[in-house]
Design a protein around this nucleic acid. Structure first.
Lengths: 107, 107
DNA sequence: CAGACATATTGATGTCTGTCAATATCTAGG
DNA sequence: CCTAGATATTGACAGACATCAATATGTCTG
């Protein structure tokens, strides 16, 4: 899976994927294949500090608190977001490496 | 959406996505968020000629012909595959630009 | 045009998923 | 400890989706 070392911007699909690899990748991709989750990631990624409080994520997407909490959990479990408890609040940041995994696959 | 011109390997999520953009991107991502479809794309992308007959895609994924046909349709409608009828056979190739769209978003 | 073969469509079914209301859990302050 | 506020979990439900068997459509060849 790692015979593709041409640095940057080259397609990672140079060999047929095994079903196991395809399953793992599909799981990662499913996490970002939802409009609300894409919005959440983009909001966090584009924030000045690179981190956003969960309390500031409900309004922008216009959904209920439990629903946003659910999406944040899905993204965190996929390794795309990282969660840090800070007092009463939960702060989320983006794991760039995890996104790069996707970029390199399709780059 | 295009104020990000740092050539290669830079994250495209520099600004919050609108719901419309997020919807469009999610639709594209959903197309590749399935293990079977990932396998199909990887098989076609890694083939010598860059194109594969549909008749050669059923066996590798181990599913029925209608199911494979359905997956190919989903990928084609998402613009990820291109279809060319050649006699009785249908040949599929990968649209690299469409995959690059994903790569640039997460790169 | 008739038969053979490749591909697509239809219909049915079980599973997964996004959403919310209600409720529970956690954390800080008094 | 008790209250208030933030976040997570549970249960329910509607819609989406992957899959297959059966069938239809398309395309070449004789």
């Amino acid at each position: 899976m790692a015979d593709q070392l041409t640095a940057c911007c080259s397609n990672g699909l140079t060999t047929p994927l095994s079903r196991e690899d395809a399953d793992a990748l599909a799981q990662l991709l499913k996490a970002v294949s939802d409009p609300v989750r894409l919005q959440l990631v983009s909001i966090i990624a584009s924030s000045p500090n690179g981190e956003v409080c969960a309390c500031d994520l409900t309004a922008p997407v216009g959904l209920s608190q439990p629903t946003v909490s659910h999406h944040l959990k899905v993204l965190t479990q996929a390794g795309i977001l990282e969660r840090e408890q800070r007092g009463t609040w939960a702060w989320f940041s983006v794991n760039g490496d995890r996104l790069s995994t996707i970029a390199q696959l399709f780059g």
